[in-house]
Simulated assay, not measured.
Amino acid sequence: MVTDSGGIRADGVRRSFGTVHAVADVDLVAEPGRVTALIGPNGSGKTTLLLMLAGLLRPDGGTVRVAGFDPVTESYAARARTGWMPDVFGTWDSLTAREVLTTVAAAYRLDRAAGEARASELLALVHLQDLADAPAHVLSRGQKQRLGLARALVHDPDVLLLDEPASGLDPRSRVDLRVLVRDLAASGKTILVSSHVLTELDEMADDAVFISKGRTVATQSVTGGDEPRQWRMLALDPAALIAWLESSETAYEPDPTGGVLVDLRGEAAAAALLRSAVEADVPVVSLAPAGGVLEQTYLALEEERR
Rank of each mutant, 00 (worst) to 15 (best):
L301S: 10
W244D: 10
V222P: 05
N42L: 05
Q220C: 00
Q145K: 12
H196Y: 09
L162D: 07
R229K: 09
L51R: 15
D170P: 10
L201G: 05
G33C: 06
S247D: 14
L245T: 03
D27H: 13
A150S: 09
V222W: 09
D183R: 14
D263S: 14
V13T: 03
R98E: 12
P165D: 08
D25F: 04
G61H: 09
D27F: 04
R151Y: 02
L53N: 03
A105G: 15
R305E: 15
E304K: 14
A114E: 15
D170K: 11
E304G: 01
A218S: 14
V197C: 00
L147N: 08
D158P: 01
D255G: 03
R141H: 14
H196P: 08
S194I: 02
R65Y: 02
V66W: 04
A132E: 04
F89Q: 02
T199P: 00
L169M: 12
M1P: 12
L123M: 10
S221V: 09
G62I: 07
R182H: 04
L49N: 07
L153G: 05
Q296S: 10
S94Q: 12
L198G: 07
D263K: 07
T250G: 00
A288E: 15
V193N: 08
R118T: 13
L177I: 09
A269V: 03
A150K: 08
Y252T: 02
D156Y: 01
D202W: 08
P283M: 07
V285N: 03
L49I: 07
L139I: 03
P254H: 12
L241T: 04
F210Y: 14
E116A: 15
R65N: 02
V217N: 07
G225Y: 10
V282F: 05
Y108Q: 06
Q220K: 01
R141A: 07
R229Q: 14
R151I: 04
P228F: 06
T82Q: 04
H127N: 12
M204G: 01
